[in-house]
Protein backbone atom coordinates (compact mmCIF):
# COMPACT_ATOMS: atom_id res chain seq x y z
CA UNK A 1 0.00 0.00 0.00
CA UNK A 2 1.24 3.40 -0.90
CA UNK A 3 -0.18 6.90 -0.51
CA UNK A 4 0.12 9.58 -3.19
CA UNK A 5 2.23 12.68 -2.54
CA UNK A 6 -0.97 14.67 -2.38
CA UNK A 7 -2.38 12.48 0.39
CA UNK A 8 0.85 12.79 2.36
CA UNK A 9 0.86 16.55 1.86
CA UNK A 10 -2.63 16.89 3.35
CA UNK A 11 -1.90 14.34 6.07
CA UNK A 12 1.29 16.06 7.21
CA UNK A 13 -0.21 19.56 7.06
CA UNK A 14 -3.97 19.21 7.12
CA UNK A 15 -5.99 22.35 6.33
CA UNK A 16 -8.99 23.56 8.34
CA UNK A 17 -8.32 21.48 11.46
CA UNK A 18 -10.26 22.58 14.52
CA UNK A 19 -13.71 23.55 15.68
CA UNK A 20 -16.07 26.49 15.12
CA UNK A 21 -17.71 27.60 18.34
CA UNK A 22 -20.39 29.49 16.44
CA UNK A 23 -21.01 26.85 13.78
CA UNK A 24 -24.35 26.95 11.96
CA UNK A 25 -24.21 23.26 11.14
CA UNK A 26 -22.33 20.37 12.72
CA UNK A 27 -22.16 16.89 11.26
CA UNK A 28 -20.63 13.84 12.84
CA UNK A 29 -20.37 10.52 11.08
CA UNK A 30 -18.56 7.34 11.89
CA UNK A 31 -17.52 4.17 10.28
CA UNK A 32 -19.07 1.71 12.67
CA UNK A 33 -16.80 -1.04 11.51
CA UNK A 34 -13.31 0.39 11.62
CA UNK A 35 -14.32 2.84 14.34
CA UNK A 36 -13.29 6.08 12.68
CA UNK A 37 -15.08 9.35 13.35
CA UNK A 38 -15.28 12.59 11.40
CA UNK A 39 -16.83 15.78 12.69
CA UNK A 40 -17.51 18.77 10.41
CA UNK A 41 -18.31 22.35 11.46
CA UNK A 42 -19.84 24.80 8.96
CA UNK A 43 -20.32 28.56 9.16
CA UNK A 44 -23.03 29.53 6.69
CA UNK A 45 -24.04 32.98 5.46
CA UNK A 46 -26.59 33.49 2.69
CA UNK A 47 -26.42 29.82 1.74
CA UNK A 48 -22.67 30.10 1.31
CA UNK A 49 -20.11 28.19 3.37
CA UNK A 50 -17.96 30.99 4.72
CA UNK A 51 -15.90 28.84 7.03
CA UNK A 52 -15.36 25.16 7.73
CA UNK A 53 -13.34 23.16 10.24
CA UNK A 54 -13.02 19.48 10.98
CA UNK A 55 -11.97 16.98 13.65
CA UNK A 56 -11.07 13.48 12.54
CA UNK A 57 -10.12 10.30 14.30
CA UNK A 58 -8.80 7.93 11.71
CA UNK A 59 -6.07 6.94 9.32
CA UNK A 60 -3.92 9.13 7.10
CA UNK A 61 -6.41 8.98 4.26
CA UNK A 62 -9.27 9.96 6.57
CA UNK A 63 -7.29 13.01 7.67
CA UNK A 64 -6.22 13.85 4.11
CA UNK A 65 -9.77 13.54 2.74
CA UNK A 66 -11.11 15.73 5.55
CA UNK A 67 -8.50 18.33 4.71
CA UNK A 68 -9.04 18.41 0.96
CA UNK A 69 -12.83 18.11 1.17
CA UNK A 70 -13.03 21.12 3.47
CA UNK A 71 -10.83 23.04 1.01
CA UNK A 72 -13.17 22.07 -1.80
CA UNK A 73 -16.35 23.36 -0.12
CA UNK A 74 -14.99 26.49 1.53
CA UNK A 75 -16.60 29.58 -0.08
CA UNK A 76 -19.02 27.41 -2.06
CA UNK A 77 -22.81 27.65 -2.02
CA UNK A 78 -24.52 24.82 -0.14
CA UNK A 79 -25.94 23.48 -3.38
CA UNK A 80 -22.41 22.90 -4.66
CA UNK A 81 -21.15 21.41 -1.39
CA UNK A 82 -23.96 18.89 -1.47
CA UNK A 83 -22.81 17.75 -4.88
CA UNK A 84 -19.35 16.83 -3.63
CA UNK A 85 -18.82 13.13 -4.05
CA UNK A 86 -16.23 10.90 -2.48
CA UNK A 87 -15.08 10.14 -6.03
CA UNK A 88 -14.22 13.80 -6.61
CA UNK A 89 -12.34 13.85 -3.32
CA UNK A 90 -10.38 10.74 -4.25
CA UNK A 91 -9.50 12.25 -7.61
CA UNK A 92 -8.37 15.48 -6.01
CA UNK A 93 -6.01 13.41 -3.85
CA UNK A 94 -4.57 11.67 -6.94
CA UNK A 95 -6.17 8.44 -5.83
CA UNK A 96 -6.37 6.31 -2.68
CA UNK A 97 -5.44 2.66 -2.14
CA UNK A 98 -8.47 0.41 -2.71
CA UNK A 99 -8.76 -0.52 0.99
CA UNK A 100 -8.92 3.20 1.85
CA UNK A 101 -11.78 4.33 -0.39
CA UNK A 102 -14.27 4.05 2.48
CA UNK A 103 -12.37 6.79 4.36
CA UNK A 104 -13.27 9.27 1.63
CA UNK A 105 -16.94 8.33 1.93
CA UNK A 106 -16.76 9.56 5.50
CA UNK A 107 -15.85 13.09 4.30
CA UNK A 108 -18.74 13.26 1.87
CA UNK A 109 -21.15 12.07 4.54
CA UNK A 110 -19.84 14.44 7.21
CA UNK A 111 -20.43 17.46 4.97
CA UNK A 112 -23.95 16.31 4.16
CA UNK A 113 -24.69 15.66 7.82
CA UNK A 114 -23.53 19.18 8.71
CA UNK A 115 -25.73 20.76 6.01
CA UNK A 116 -28.69 18.68 7.17
CA UNK A 117 -28.06 19.88 10.72
CA UNK A 118 -28.12 23.48 9.46
CA UNK A 119 -31.40 22.87 7.58
CA UNK A 120 -32.96 21.20 10.61
CA UNK A 121 -31.92 23.96 12.99
CA UNK A 122 -33.30 26.65 10.71
CA UNK A 123 -36.49 24.92 9.69
CA UNK A 124 -35.45 24.84 6.05
CA UNK A 125 -37.25 22.20 4.03
CA UNK A 126 -35.32 19.69 2.00
CA UNK A 127 -35.64 16.47 0.14
CA UNK A 128 -34.81 13.74 2.66
CA UNK A 129 -33.62 11.53 -0.19
CA UNK A 130 -30.61 13.79 -0.50
CA UNK A 131 -29.33 12.70 2.88
CA UNK A 132 -29.93 9.03 2.61
CA UNK A 133 -26.50 7.49 2.85
CA UNK A 134 -25.95 4.45 0.80
CA UNK A 135 -24.68 1.40 2.54
CA UNK A 136 -21.08 1.02 1.55
CA UNK A 137 -19.67 -2.42 1.47
CA UNK A 138 -16.01 -3.16 1.53
Amino acid sequence: MEYSEKVMEHFVNPHNVGKLDDADGIGEVGNAKCGDIMKMYLKIENEIITDVKFNTYGCASAIATSSIATDMIKGQPLSEALKLTNKAVVEALDGLPAVKIHCSVLAEQAIKAAVKDYYDKNGIEYDAEMFKFEEHHH
Binding site: K33, C34, C59
Partner: peptide, 20 residues
Protein backbone atom coordinates in the same frame (compact mmCIF):
# COMPACT_ATOMS: atom_id res chain seq x y z
CA UNK B 1 7.92 7.56 10.26
CA UNK B 2 8.23 11.24 9.32
CA UNK B 3 10.41 11.61 12.41
CA UNK B 4 12.58 8.70 11.27
CA UNK B 5 11.07 6.07 13.57
CA UNK B 6 9.93 2.74 12.06
CA UNK B 7 7.29 0.97 14.15
CA UNK B 8 4.06 -0.95 13.61
CA UNK B 9 0.45 -0.99 14.76
CA UNK B 10 -2.42 -3.44 15.05
CA UNK B 11 -4.98 -0.73 14.29
CA UNK B 12 -7.94 -1.55 12.05
CA UNK B 13 -6.76 1.07 9.59
CA UNK B 14 -3.38 -0.62 9.13
CA UNK B 15 -4.87 -4.09 8.81
CA UNK B 16 -6.64 -3.45 5.52
CA UNK B 17 -9.52 -5.50 6.92
CA UNK B 18 -11.30 -2.82 8.99
CA UNK B 19 -10.83 -4.88 12.13
CA UNK B 20 -8.11 -4.32 14.68
Amino acid sequence: DLMGISASSGSACTSGSLDP
